[in-house]
Measured scan of single mutants.
Amino acid sequence: RSRTAFTAQQLEALEKTFQKTHYPDVVMRERLAMCTNLPEARVQVWFKNRRAKFRK
């Protein structure tokens, strides 16, 4: 699988949600996936990586 390049709009939506909660539930992730045209699995991995970045 190749690396996913996120658009500015996708990142904005993801970051906005991350500010609200670092652990979105499956419903919220699926809604984000639909809004951003990304698979739910990519949204889940983005949050996992973003939490790791946040802890540093």
Rank of each mutant, 00 (worst) to 15 (best):
K20H: 10
C35A: 14
S2V: 10
R29F: 13
C35V: 15
E12V: 01
L11G: 02
T36L: 14
M34V: 14
R3F: 13
M34F: 10
A33E: 00
S2C: 10
N49K: 15
P39I: 01
F18N: 02
A52Q: 07
R31T: 10
V27K: 05
M34T: 13
V26I: 13
H22Y: 05
V43W: 04
N37H: 09
A33S: 07
Q10W: 00
A8K: 07
A41L: 07
E15V: 02
F54V: 04
S2I: 13
V27F: 08
Y23G: 08
K48G: 07
L11Q: 10
M28P: 03
A13Q: 10
A13I: 12
R50C: 01
E12Q: 10
R50S: 07
T21N: 06
A13W: 08
A52G: 01
A5K: 13
L32R: 02
F54P: 13
T7W: 10
R42E: 15
P39E: 11
R1G: 08
K16M: 12
A5E: 15
V26E: 13
W46G: 05
L14V: 07
E12C: 02
C35G: 07
R51E: 01
T17P: 07
E40K: 12
L38A: 02
F6R: 08
T7A: 09
C35Q: 14
E12T: 08
A8Q: 12
L38Y: 03
V26S: 15
W46M: 04
A8I: 06
M28G: 01
E40V: 09
E30R: 05
A33F: 00
Q10P: 04
H22N: 06
T36W: 14
T36Q: 10
A8P: 09
K20D: 05
K20M: 13
F6W: 05
V45F: 06
T7F: 08
D25R: 04
N49A: 09
L11S: 12
C35I: 15
R50Q: 14
L11M: 09
H22P: 11
F54W: 12
T21L: 07
D25H: 01
R3I: 14
K16Y: 15
Q19T: 12
F47W: 01
L32I: 08
T17F: 10
L32D: 00
T4Q: 14
R31K: 13
A8Y: 12
R29A: 07
S2G: 12
R3L: 14
F6L: 13
W46C: 07
M34L: 13
